[in-house]
Design a protein around this nucleic acid. Sequence first.
RNA 1: GGGCUUGUAGCUCAGUUGGUUAGAGCGCCUGCUUCACACGCAGGAGGUCCACAGUUCGAGUCUGUGCAAGCCCACCA
Length: 889
Amino acid sequence: MQIEKVYEPQRFEPHWAQWWIDSGIFRASGSPSGSAAGRVFSLVIPPPNVTGSLHIGHMLEHTEIDVTIRWHRMLGENTLWLPGTDHAGIATQMVVERKLAEEGIKRQDLGREEFEKRVWQWKQQYGDTIKRQMIRLGTSCDWSRERFTLDPGLSRAVREVFVRLYEKDLIYRGEYMVNWCPRCHTAISDLETVHSDVEGHLWHIRYPVNGMPGRYVTVATTRPETMLGDTAIAINAKDTRYLDLHGKTVQVPLMDREIPIILDDLADPEFGTGVVKVTPAHDANDFEMGRRHNLPKIQVIDDNGNMTAAAGRFAGLDRFQARKEVVAALEAGGQLVKVENYTLPLGRCDRCKTVVEPLISTQWFVKMKPLAEKAIAAVETGRIEFIPANWSKTYFEWMYNIRDWCISRQLWWGHRIPAWHCQECHEIVVAREEPKTCPRCASGRLVQDTDVLDTWFSSGLWPFSTLGWPDQTEDLATFYPTSLLITGFDILFFWVARMAMLGIEFMGEVPFRQVYIHGLVRDADKQKMSKSRGNVVDPLIVTEKYGTDAVRMALLQGAAPGTDIVLTEERMDTARAFANKIWNAARFLFLNMERSGVEPWVPDSLEQYRPESDPATLEVRIEDRWIFSRLNSTAELVNRAIEQYRYHEVAQVLWQFFWHEFCDWYLELKKMRFQENSGLTAGWRNTLAAFETALRLLHPAMPFLTEELWQRLAGGRTTRPLSIAIAPYPQYRQEMTDFEAEREVGVLQEIVTMARTLRTEAKLDPKQQLVGTVYARNSALEVAERHADAIQRLANVKLEFKNEAAPKAPAIRSTAQFDLVLEVPKSHEEAQRKRVGKDREQLVKNIANSERQLSDETFLSKAPPPVIESIRQKLTDYQTQLKKIDDAL
RNA sequence: GGGCUUGUAGCUCAGUUGGUUAGAGCGCCUGCUUCACACGCAGGAGGUCCACAGUUCGAGUCUGUGCAAGCCCACCA
């Protein structure tokens, strides 16, 4: 059997990825949004009893990346992750955005028809790239359709949900203040608006009061240009400063318009001058006030962010330019009282960072209160559980303060709203299929609403739409509700909360039982990875360089619950070293199999294997007993860690076991067992079974490498499972625990380590064989003697064994059980003495500490007996060792 | 303004229900190119667990206050 000297993941990873899909072992899934680069390396680990693997995809030549999970479908387990939803749409969207940017065109300049034509061309041009990507992601998409929208099954589900919500009166269309992005030319939801504090000004403007010559009111505003659209001035009824103004009107400076002074609680006497200008068309608060007082709405800024004709002489100016000119004009006219520096929160578009303009427009909304109530209850009653649990607090906070969700977008891709407007009678028809005639006036002139839905609307249907809903499919019956959702907190509201609400509403049951929230991946400077920051790790480059398994392992190591994951090249470097270590352990075994004439082999029953005894001695070799006992503990720890979502611990335990037990001790011990042309002996079967079990343990963490090695190890046998991915995951078996073997190997390890330390301290050549003696008056002596060969090999020390007390010697190391004395040249005695002196100091400290406690009456009466007992035991050990050291000195 | 999180070795972080010599990886120091692996092997140095107070026989761990850093939410001009 050939095994390459260098570990080259590129040679087998693509092969297995494709094979897993082709052979039906995995179905792929992905999160619906590919845009949040912070989730690029969303940590994906299989839930309990499910084997899975992470595959990192890459969209569109280094511009976008996403993660795909391939889950193994386990019969009877309600954990199935299905093809992602919107990947095709998102990929298209990205092509479009890129091309628009490249060619410097705006969508609105093209017109819808021309736009769609271009999109089609670009799609042809980039179709192969996208398609390749989709295949790699395992995502379905339908390329034969004329329109570039999404998966047809999903489109159907989206229409169905929309119609049902509309029928239940949970969707309405209305004129409201929305966050408008003048660049994207669309309304965006509250969640897509990001706030940041900016240094601004508070301009104090004087409005003359009509009928009261010389009387003015001064208002403070951060947006003077909106004063052009003022339709009232508000004061608090309780504000004694302005009692004389009740019922009066003021004159809007620069506009020469008369507006009323109204009384409203929103005017806070404590803030500014206590007087607020009211601009119902450009501020959410003012909009509400305008409703309460029936004020007219004057729109002075249009949807491009420019001043409208209503802005008088400022018409046509950009809104920021208009601000400057308005301020200048006010100043010239003496109406500007003063300017203060002021820090204010400014909303920007999440996508393009353009300052959001609050505008009145007609949009589609979902009523959230009724949906939220059920979703809150689901978490309160524990039907949905967050891990870590404190995320439920964040969830509640948002849910309790939820506002209606603006779902219409003026974008030109995505799912179009299934509503048709009658051109004759203006009736709005919401329907699953395009209506032929208007149900009210029978006119045939129906035009579909041009808006599309917020992408999260369709994403929110993911848990059931991917299972075939609205059809009552077998998948739906079997796999809804799913057991676990693994995701990042950055989309808790966008996605998780909405899946919860929509799932409960349409399925009558929660979409998932548990939500594991992992940290965001951050770069070396702890910055969130994002496209705009440009600090995104490119998975194609990184997986090419380190291997997918190594990247995955690096993520795993940093995946402690509740913390972010810092992904650095160093970490991936060491993870690759680990992968290489596994590879070379395999290489070592394969080379020796060849020498011994052993064919590829794995046990018939992976779950039932027990180490076999040597026909000559009728005993199981100690190292075999030991490694199976260690494998067993490792399986126990790993399984428990997975159940508790302690993924970093999974990584740590696997690492520790494979590197520092399997390689450092087991394989080293095995080196002296292998013989040329021995054939498949019991010892070989034990070795291969142990390695095979280790591979299965490692598989969820390092899927590609373990599949490759496992297939080579099994060498094409047909009775085995098709893939390591569907082989049983090692479980704890009580009968495999072998305390005796662990103790024996423990003694061996101690002696070897002690000998090595002594040797290094004495600065002796590793190649020079030393002579030493083990002194003990208990069973440790016999154990040591039995393993003299192994000790000699591992530490290069020839040992004698004496059942007596250790003599005074310079090079001595002691445990409570035994002492090891090495013969070293006199010149090195001083170094030894220093060393022993240091040990002694520590022992004296420990003894004092233990004695203090054991003489404390309160401690003895209050501490639990096992704790007291363990301290007594330790004290005895310390004292024994101290005595030995003192004797030696 | 409301909520959340973090502060442990030079760096990045573990440390489960409080139990007495606080761990890992990287980095650093020493020695080794030993026939699986220098992406390696062996050995080693390095920490007043942010500060103060409290609870307790016992605190890195629990409570409070303070200091420092970060994140999320929020319509007050």
